[in-house]
Design a binder for these strands. Sequence first.
DNA 1: CGCGCTGTTGAAACTTGTCAAAGTTTGTGG
DNA 2: CCACAAACTTTGACAAGTTTCAACAGCGCG
Lengths: 244, 244
Amino acid sequence: MHSPAIRISSQSLQVACSQCNLRELCLPYGLHSDEVEKLDEMVGMRRRVKRGQHLYRAGEPFESIFAVRMGFFKTGVILEDGREQVTGFQMSGELLGLDGISSESHTCNAVALEDSDVCVIPFSRLEHLSREIESLQHNFHKVMSREIVRDQGIMMLLGSMHAEERLAAFLLNLSQRFTTRGFSPSEFHLRMTRQEIGSYLGLKLETVSRAFSKFQEGNLISVQQKHIHILDIPGLRRILRKQD
Amino acid sequence: MHSPAIRISSQSLQVACSQCNLRELCLPYGLHSDEVEKLDEMVGMRRRVKRGQHLYRAGEPFESIFAVRMGFFKTGVILEDGREQVTGFQMSGELLGLDGISSESHTCNAVALEDSDVCVIPFSRLEHLSREIESLQHNFHKVMSREIVRDQGIMMLLGSMHAEERLAAFLLNLSQRFTTRGFSPSEFHLRMTRQEIGSYLGLKLETVSRAFSKFQEGNLISVQQKHIHILDIPGLRRILRKQD
DNA sequence: CGCGCTGTTGAAACTTGTCAAAGTTTGTGG
DNA sequence: CCACAAACTTTGACAAGTTTCAACAGCGCG
């Protein structure tokens, strides 16, 4: 499955956690340097996923979790009638595949929305190393817990907010995550379609489009297709506060 | 905080995992008997929570997770305007407090909906023991992962289903969980109000009430206040299938 | 360079929420 | 144990928000 050649070229591409500029966003967070070196051994290889390709599919056996090194993913499931339901968007430093642990097979699809790179973290090795490195164990538990908290936040969004509030929350969340990664908080490129945003927010694509237009009318943002410029962050926040 | 006297009385009430008839639903699942005995030492004590009382509150420091031994809980948050948003209902064998790991403080409130008993599991001891007992570690990871999968299921419910579909899914889910615990799949008592069901399902209480009435008209269930009798499980399933 | 996917906008239909009133159950204190 | 108050539930009529259907514009990929 993974040839020595790939292994070597990966190394030359700085596969090592100790060299990764995402280590403050990822599993190595807070680990001592000797511990991070052990992590390096665990992270078997990198995998490149081109735009539109699957990182994994629902039903496939679960063996590894993945850390996004570069790029942008969506996760979701295909419903019986063929529609897609998007459950999340992941960017660099975020983990993919945690849902597969429980059933030992992936429960959703993960698709790259742009050419991406991930670190492959064999789960049994992660568990093994977690038994040795206390802070890695604790870190991993925190990451899983954060995922639970995140999901509950979305449940609240879906359960109690109107269309415009949902979109405002979505934009502010993206803005905040881009900021953490050193990008502009106010200007970015959406990697997903209106359809995918709508699916994620529990809205139809037309409703998403209308909300974008409304925000633009109110000079809160400027939209040009997928290019978003947030003009008034406090204004977006006020939309959230209205009902929530 | 916990006197020897309480400790002893707890023991006499069969605090031990090895004696617990929920062990197939809880953390001890699949552990060898010598390992379960180590678990017994970890589970410090039981705690009794009367109906309406809080097990924990949002913002309190996180120290332990809890396993429901007996009873019924709801978790939720209070929004700024005073409304409550319910994020889950927990019954025997299910864990509470996993969301607190990430921030080291509880992110929601947990309230007993009937007089309940929980096992208090100090989290640092759980992590410590997880480093020794491989199957406990794996079990715990599975439990957390299952929570993530569960939340994503609710996201899909909230994002893509109509009122009656949501209520049908809710009833079928309860039915299934009661069945697992040896109770009737078709007849049970709701511990929560229409308001709380509505909050959980992203609906107003009136809508929940109307959906109950509609199901009753269609001879799918018989409702008498909080007492539910499911007359036609396949019929409820068909309601789910319609749009999903 | 054109075809297809994506996005925008309008009008009508539908679902759910809001407000209001009345009935029912539960819990408490006398 | 009863009576009363508070909380919960049901139902109706109307309002608001979202979806559906349809038409058209624009961008981007091959």
